[in-house]
């Protein structure tokens, strides 16, 4: 690409960057608004026309949220649930995906369609039977319920299966000839090769669990079990809402994800090792 850095190419680059920066600013606008609103008083948040600069800046919101809300507990609960769910989803999902992608058994495709089929059913429409079941096991109003709800979703299986399919079968074949068992192939070949997919699944599962609202709403009652999303909801009363504090909490709740995402960057685009697999 560095063959002929002509002036034309350079201006193209500059224009591309300019376009990307403008697009990025546009994409981030809602987040910017969140940050701005988190520095306002409650009655300044919604106005017509929009006020882009808080007057005065109310930094106290970032102190109040810890006092008025139990952020420490909420973050701890959300973190616990998200980490456990992500672990379970990634491990069982990629394990099952190997079964669907690289082994053969009767009814495999039908079973897989069943998995996808359940994704197509809105959760709200079966949450009551599910809740009755889990609460009859005494799991309602515990963090376990939320973990169980999210951990065995079909999405992880689907994502990993599709990824495994783009890894050539001949690799597995060769490994079998070398005497590896199917479990060995999964562990020693598939997992290392699927880092970008695992990274995507991890971040997506983590974010989805982190931001889940309806699940905790139905299952969690005790204050000490609340997650961030549920906790922030308590700033919405019947007739009043503390929008400024909600935005403060939302900003704080996005930060860990943004950091994880930025740190995990290189795994998303890690060229996988099929390139190194040549003879």
């Amino acid at each position: 690409m560095a063959a002929r850095p002509t002036a034309l190419r350079k201006t193209g680059r500059v224009l591309l960057y300019l376009a990307m920066i403008v697009a990025a600013a546009g994409i981030l606008l809602p987040f910017v608004w969140m940050v701005i609103s988190s520095l306002k008083t409650n009655n300044q948040v919604f106005t017509a026309p929009i006020e882009w600069i808080p007057d005065p800046f109310r930094w106290r919101n970032y102190v109040d949220i810890w006092i008025k809300g139990d952020m420490v507990t909420w973050v701890r609960n959300t973190m616990t649930v998200s980490v456990v769910v992500t672990l379970l989803q990634v491990v069982t999902g990629s394990f099952a995906a190997y079964g669907f992608a690289k082994t053969r058994f009767p009814g495999r495709d039908a079973l897989f369609l069943l998995y996808i089929g359940t994704i197509a059913v809105p959760w709200a429409s079966y949450m009551i039977p599910q809740f009755q079941m889990l609460s009859s096991w005494g799991l309602a109003n515990t963090l376990y319920s939320i973990m169980l709800l999210q951990a065995f979703g079909a999405f992880g299986v689907f994502l990993m299966k599709q990824y495994y399919e783009s890894i050539p079968d001949s690799l597995c074949e060769a490994a079998r000839i070398d005497g590896l068992s199917e479990y060995g192939i999964w562990w020693r070949i598939m997992l290392p090769l699927s880092v970008p997919a695992l990274a995507s699944l991890t971040i997506i599962t983590f974010v989805t669990t982190w931001n889940d609202y309806l699940g905790p709403l139905i299952y969690l009652r005790d204050r000490e079990l609340w997650t961030i999303q549920l906790g922030l909801q308590r700033f919405v009363g019947d007739y009043n809402a503390e929008h400024a504090l909600i935005m403060t909490g939302s900003v704080l709740s996005v930060l860990p994800i943004a950091i994880v995402f930025l740190l995990g960057q290189r795994y998303f685009v890690q060229g996988i090792a099929t390139t190194g697999v040549k003879g």
Binding site: I218, R221, R223, V236, G237
Partner: peptide, 14 residues
């Protein structure tokens, strides 16, 4: 304790 707003009905219904 239940949440406020319409969520009260949703959670209580469950």
């Amino acid at each position: 304790e239940y949440p406020a707003g319409e969520e009260y009905d949703t959670a209580l219904t469950a």
